[in-house]
Design a protein around this nucleic acid. Structure first.
Ligand code: FES
Ligand code: FES
Lengths: 163, 163
DNA sequence: TCATACTTGATCGAATTAGTCAGGTATGCT
DNA sequence: AGCATACCTGACTAATTCGATCAAGTATGA
């Protein structure tokens, strides 16, 4: 299990944009230079981010990109969904057809673990916002605390009956 | 991010073995039939599990496999490490060389997020044990609670100075 | 009207994953 | 002993996904 290069590059780009003065923009070309990612790849990433509503673009000469909303309102989870479509693919969905299908489905003891893991990962990334990644003076991850509190409240993994 | 087919199949096999009576064994052939996974693939998986010290094998006619220790002493994290080598690959290690390297490394605001995510995933899977996956009468995931408690105690993501 | 820069979608090689295959070795049973 | 059963090993290959490139635009500011 890992973070893909796509997410890694996208995050670096978003952090660059987050460190911009209000009103300022950064061109795809500049971003490419700054992060040492090919221009074409940067273009592709920015396009996905734009479609996801995370960045805004200004066309024409002296154009460029900026965040579409406050960096405190953009989570890494959103970012991942924007560039990859989803944060965590559920295994029993993926293998639910064909020869080697996930066999239990109903009243299965395994499924809840993957479900819970997915919720956990997604919950975490949804709580971490862009402004928390800016350096210098990184802020403590207060939001993470809230997430963990919620997690604790629910308390246990429920075994599902084929939901 | 997802659970691979390898982990999925391995887990199903381990749950089968966990549901065995003490002293009983299950042949690779039977496991293959039960879980609808090719015999060759089952062999490969069992071999990795054996090398990881999770299952024991008896050779010869009427031979077979069984768990090497109590199902309550085997975590899903261990299982994943046995069959895939690791649970979560750290991104800033993976891309740390070559053209498109992870650029910040020292006093980076992004890195701690991936580190923390990895700790969280691994921590979770290390707390979930095989016996918790047996059906019928699945137990509540009490261990998960302990994990979350610990997580809360530490409390926040630390920004590292190039550790 | 030109240069700059965004926009779209296809394509393609590299890497990883998923699964197969061939050829063993060890053990129990008759 | 001889044979059947079943474990064991590692190489190999097909399928899929990832990472990145490429070609061919459109829109805008100077
Ligand atoms: S392992 Fe997927 S439903 Fe049980
Ligand atoms: S993004 Fe990897 S070290 Fe900063």
């Amino acid at each position: 299990m890992r973070i893909t290069s796509l997410v890694e590059c996208s995050t670096r780009i978003m952090v660059r944009l987050a460190s911009l003065q209000p009103g300022a923009t950064l061109s795809a070309e500049k971003l490419s230079d700054l992060e040492n990612v090919s221009r074409d790849y940067v273009d592709q990433i920015l396009q996905r981010l734009r479609k996801g509503g995370l960045v805004a673009s200004t066309r024409g000469a002296q154009g460029g990109y900026s965040l579409a909303k406050a960096s405190s309102a953009i989570s890494i989870g959103e970012l991942v969904r924007a560039v990859e479509g989803q944060v965590f693919e559920e295994v029993c969905e993926r293998y639910s057809s064909g020869e080697h299908e996930c066999r239990h489905m109903s009243n299965c003891g395994i499924r809840p673990v993957w479900l819970r893991l997915g919720e956990m990962i997604e919950g975490f990334l949804d709580k971490v916002t862009l402004d928390q990644l800016t350096v210098p003076e990184p802020r403590a991850f207060a939001a993470t605390m809230a997430f963990i509190k919620d997690f604790e409240k629910e308390g246990r993994i429920q075994h599902d009956k084929r939901r």
